[in-house]
Amino acid sequence: MTTPHTRLADIVKTARQPLLEGWLANLREALGDGRIANAELTHQATDLLNLITAALESGTDIQGDGWTATRQMLEEISRSRAVQGFSWTETAMFVFSLKKALFTEVRRALGSDAEALAEATWQSNVVVDALGMHTIQTFQRSREGIILRQQEELLELSTPVVTLWDGILALPMIGTLDSSRTQVVMESLLQRIVDSGSEVAIIDITGVPTVDTLVAQHLLKTVTAIRLMGADCIISGIRPQIAQTIVHLGIDLRGVTTKASLADALAVAFDRSGLTVVKRHAS
């Protein structure tokens, strides 16, 4: 049997130990200081090399069935790298550093046979590149997964609807308002109004750094939706700069009750609900 990939498989199998040592040396050089424990690195490299050795028997198409175990291991490694916060380069280096060691071994085995050497070198190049690509792909997917999850967590984090009093809800908004956030905020507030039967909702924008026309439009939409459902809405926490911006931008806030502080808004809410706060006389 002299098909190129079995020849490559043979080389890898016979030169397993020097290959591993060469790879590990390259790895240590590429990754520098010990962010990954030496033992763990050796362990991962040994496992992966064993899997590659076995898989090479089946061919060099790494999407094939023979490579399933190798692909899974690479996915696992790149996922854990992504979680640990490694960079693209560091993750890809893990696979690509195999190349130099592999080329050295191929050259040692096929030294004089130029044609076979070129063929085997090309084969190993293809395999290592494909493995590297697969690693990066998984790494990217894991990263995207992490970002997506964090975005969702942020959305949940930033939309707490609190009950200030029986029938009075407050929504302290924090951070910049964009369309998707406003949508989530609006929906959760409206749902809470229905669930609790609250007649007054206070939106506090103390934590909103800037108000532009878009943010104002989102706010107005929320206020209108709340009114349509039959509840009242008060906007509080408008800072002096924001009041100035709103007027300069020509945003029409007529028909919306606005208050400077949450306390003022609460006082209005009490008034509308027919409640009074009285101070107990000192006995």
Binding site: M186, E187, L190, Q191, I193, V194, G197, E199, K221, T224, A225, I226, R227, L228, M229, G230, A231
Partner: peptide, 27 residues
Amino acid sequence: VVGMRPAVAITLVELGLSLQGVETALD
């Protein structure tokens, strides 16, 4: 107009229908 659902309220607002002058209540 009473008992408008959140989804309906959002749709009307997105359609630009704010039902000016219509009184509303929760139930």
